[in-house]
């Protein structure tokens, strides 16, 4: 894993390009080795593979959005509280009534768009540091939410729970949905003008502006996509938990984890380089790590400690190679 070939003249091995694949293979190897050593081969089934992936849908959807924010050299720390807010709004507006499914989803998506728009405007027009702007937004959302709700509120009709529990064969709808969303995001980044603008703005904002790109609009757009994805993740979580509560986003640490997953996937925190499939690889790595902990029977609190260490180590794994100064 660490023995990267030296850069030979001519054909150079681009470590950064393959790092997420290497990490993914390493995680898979450790997982399989652990299962074989512990003699629990019953975990080595297709069903179990799908189950592992299915556990990280919320993180996956959030991370797809976070990729956009990080690619434009920004960051979004408000996703966790937005997920809580989206889940609560979903379940409160639906309140068990199947007829309210569409209005609820539309309301939550609108919420996502508004939050993203405000984040983007504050960051680009008021020139507030994105960390602080989204942190402040996170406090505001969390404050408003816990002012009105302090427990599970409303409930999601059975028809809507299909989003989380329904499946085609053994593959859950939500998993298909996540991969379709990732596909769309990949298409946008790879083939549209907005996508290439995102990379230019993240790579060098001044150069992008001089090249005639409306950098502010691109950054705002990226933030809207990010918040929209967090809102969708909240809808999914409400469907899975059958109700929303104001702490579910913070409890999942989705803000930090989505950033960590994006970085593990090879997207550079300074912006401009990276992509969606790396992020998806990162999500799978994370759920594999979780499964490894479960198979090995690690205590919940120890798991938390290890998680913090792994996140930092994974970021260090990339960052130590970059010559750029860090904040």
């Amino acid at each position: 894993m660490t023995d990267t070939p030296l850069p030979a003249p001519g054909r150079r091995f681009r470590f950064e390009r393959h790092a997420s694949t290497i990490l993914l293979l390493a995680a898979v190897t450790i997982y399989i080795a652990l299962i074989v050593i512990m003699g629990q081969t019953r975990f080595l089934t297709l069903d179990n593979l799908v189950a592992i992936l299915g556990r990280s849908i919320t993180l996956g959807i959030t991370a797809i959005g976070q990729t956009f924010a990080i690619l434009v050299a920004s960051i979004d720390l408000s996703v966790a509280s937005l997920i809580s807010a989206a889940a609560v709004v979903t379940s409160v507006v639906m309140n068990g009534d199947p007829a309210m499914m569409l209005p609820a989803v539309l309301a939550v998506l609108a919420l996502g768009v508004v939050v993203g728009l405000v984040n983007g405007l504050v960051i680009t027009k008021l020139e507030v540091n994105p960390l602080i702007a989204t942190l402040g937004m996170s406090l505001i959302i969390q404050g408003v939410l816990s002012y009105y709700y302090n427990n599970f509120a409303g409930n999601v009709p059975v028809e809507f729970q299909i989003f989380a529990y329904g499946s085609v064969g053994i593959v859950p709808f939500s998993l298909v949905f996540m991969f379709v969303l990732a596909g769309c995001a990949w298409f946008v980044l790879r083939f549209t003008r907005f996508g290439s603008d995102v990379y230019s703005v993240g790579g060098n904002r001044d150069a992008a502006r001089l090249a005639g790109i409306k950098t502010d609009r691109v950054a705002i757009g990226a933030h809207m996509i990010c918040s929209l994805c967090a809102a969708i993740a909240g809808i999914y979580l409400a469907s899975r938990l059958r109700s929303g509560a104001p702490w579910i986003g913070a409890e999942g640490v989705y803000d930090l984890e989505s950033i960590a997953v994006v970085v593990i996937g090879g997207t550079v925190l300074a912006g401009g380089r990276g992509g969606i499939w790396g992020t998806i690889a990162g999500v799978i790595i994370f759920s594999l790590i979780d499964s490894i902990f479960n198979v090995a029977g690690v205590d919940a609190f120890v798991k938390q400690v290890l998680r913090g260490i792994i996140i930092v180590a994974a970021v260090a794994f990339y960052a130590a190679r970059s010559k750029r100064p860090v904040a």
Binding site: L131, V253, L256, I259, A260, V263, L269, D299, F301, V302, K303, Q304, V305, R307, G308, I309, I311, V312, V315, A316, A319, A320, S322, V326, A327
Partner: peptide, 22 residues
């Protein structure tokens, strides 16, 4: 290790909370 301080200390935050719980 050149980890951005935000990530490094957030990781430390999770770790220390875990240690306190443990």
């Amino acid at each position: 290790l050149k980890v951005p301080s935000l990530i490094a200390t957030l990781g430390m935050m999770i770790t220390l909370n875990g240690v306190a719980f443990m």
